[in-house]
Design a protein around this nucleic acid. Structure first.
Lengths: 325, 325
DNA sequence: TTGTACGCGTTATCAC
DNA sequence: GTGATAACGCGTACAA
């Protein structure tokens, strides 16, 4: 690829003059200007952003660290982050950890080598001190997205509150027996049960099971066989909810009559499912916006009021799987 | 971030010695070695990949240019590309054009500024001479993925053949009236109709309509109302097929009895739909593998036998929407 | 084994 | 208005 020095040689001026012409800050002889511009255009010149960054202007690169972009929710998030970054004049380097914690730490080093100006990360876990330490040690402005990482700028929805929303929605739709399908010690699950308890649902009517639990189908069959009961199921994300709907179908359990299902993330396909899936929607665009805005503030060393910790609010999108459409 | 020069100063050696220690090629005094390594570790040193690239070793960055990563198919593709790139020692810069052709051309310049060693692109159209010219002018090894771009290394499945597969599948499942839902002049559509005609289906039993056509539902109603006929519908991608299934449901047209639907891309959710969606699957992993392999070959100036143009083969994944499960 | 000198492509700071 | 010159962080050739 052609460089400024070569253009200088070809047009008979000095390299700094070429720089002046192409950055357009200072004034140059209009005649020289034209000659240089034409030569640059003819040879499809593009300035070397890397060489620029050596002078200390920053790379205008943001590292986007994800668990797995093939999840529709993260794909949308990535698109929003890229769009926001773009508007702010940044491009993104994308890395997937594949939920491997060692690889997740490596990713930090990779983007550090490229001297990214900032990092937007969806951590695997919000309580991994190893990762949090590594991020702090990295000396690069970073913001956690979708999860609240203590001590780190975080943009996320209040998961406990969201769990409460799911509980209230299911109660309102007339369900009286409850199941949370997700990992143990999930904040969403905790908020779900807290709200149920507060609403007077007895503990015996509340249960939790992991999505990959071999006994999941057995559990579904048993609970939904209980005559006169309607089971409200809250899944930790829409992909798990999708699988759940298939299990229920295989078990001939009518949705939403005998069992209601509410997911989390509201991925784009959810509204097109059959039955369409009730889900909890996170404000993706707003999250991306806030994350990038905070990164840019840090990058430009604008005074920031402490660690960003302003939980956003999720909302229920009612559809057929809970009889809400 | 700390540099080799600073480590050199702190440990009382010269900068090249630090370089030698950290790259580990040449032998250095073990004592010095330890001192330098410890200092580097203590300050969390990472070499500046950009400064390295200035010497001409390349950036080890690949540009991945997509239309829209929020489409599950492209998200999966991006993940595979990232994984392959990683294995080959490359990281990726990801850009979405959002199907805007001007933006699509800008994307090329962006990655050029970052001196990516190669470009893997999913073009908006395979016949945009403006874009193809720009890619060639870019002077960066590039490969088109999923689409065949004449004159450019391309990794793709034979769309006409895939259309034929869809036709044969629908014929085999007993459908006798056919509709293609996709853009006009689509290769898949052409292959679809070619196979139908070859199989003796009269032209009157073949029709095409755009996915966003306002008269789509009317067309569905009319065709499926024809007594004694079963309509086989081929959608240009799974997302459109999803919408189609919803229209059919709204129209109370039984799938797969009165109408059969086959999509394209086999996105991950297709198998979980109700009815689960028959689709044409592209060998994603293989495509990513071949694309990156070809890029790396070009980057390393290995002799390549002309322009890569080896169409891969798609396959039908039969599911409930065509009564194949 | 180690230090000096230089170059990569660009911007910034000087003189002129 | 314009041309030297230095600087950024690193690798490499060469000298010691």
């Amino acid at each position: 690829m052609i460089t400024m020095a070569e253009i200088a040689r070809m047009t008979g001026v000095s390299q700094p003059t070429v720089s002046r012409v192409l950055s357009g800050n200072t004034s140059v002889n209009p005649e020289v200007r034209e000659r240089v511009l034409e030569c640059a255009r003819a040879h499809n010149f593009q300035p070397n952003a890397l060489a620029k960054s050596l002078q200390g202007g920053g790379t205008h690169l943001l590292g986007v660290l994800l668990t797995d972009i093939s999840n529709g929710f993260f794909a949308e998030l990535a698109r929003e982050l890229e769009a926001c970054a773009n508007r702010a004049g940044y491009s993104i380097i994308l890395l997937n950890s594949g939920r491997d914690e060692a690889r997740e730490r490596d990713c930090i080093d990779v983007v550090r080598r490229y001297r990214v100006d900032g990092i937007a990360a969806v951590p695997i876990r919000s309580d991994s001190s190893l990762w949090t330490e590594e991020i702090h040690r990295s000396d690069v402005p970073a913001v956690a997205v979708t999860l609240h990482v203590p001590g780190l700028d975080s943009v996320y929805v209040d998961h406990a509150e969201a769990g409460g929303l799911a509980a209230r929605h299911l109660l309102k739709r007339g369900y009286d027996d409850f199941l949370f399908v997700g990992p143990p010690k999930d904040e969403k699950g905790a908020g779900f049960f807290l709200e149920l308890t507060a609403s007077g649902v007895p503990a015996a009517r509340c249960a939790a099971v992991r999505p990959d639990d071999a006994g999941l189908c057995e559990e579904l069959r048993r609970r939904c066989a209980a005559e006169g009961r309607r089971t409200g199921i809250f899944a930790t994300n829409d992909l798990d909810a999708l699988v759940l709907l298939n299990h229920l179908r295989a078990l001939s359990i009518d949705v939403p009559r005998r069992a209601g299902v509410i997911g989390f993330d509201d991925i784009p396909v959810s509204r097109y499912l059959n039955p369409s899936l009730t889900s909890i929607s996170q404000p993706l665009g707003e999250m991306a916006e806030q994350a990038v805005a905070r990164l840019v503030s840090r990058i430009e060393r604008r005074p920031c009021s402490g660690v960003l910790d302003a939980p956003l609010h999720a909302s229920v999108v009612g559809r057929e799987s809970t009889g809400a459409l």
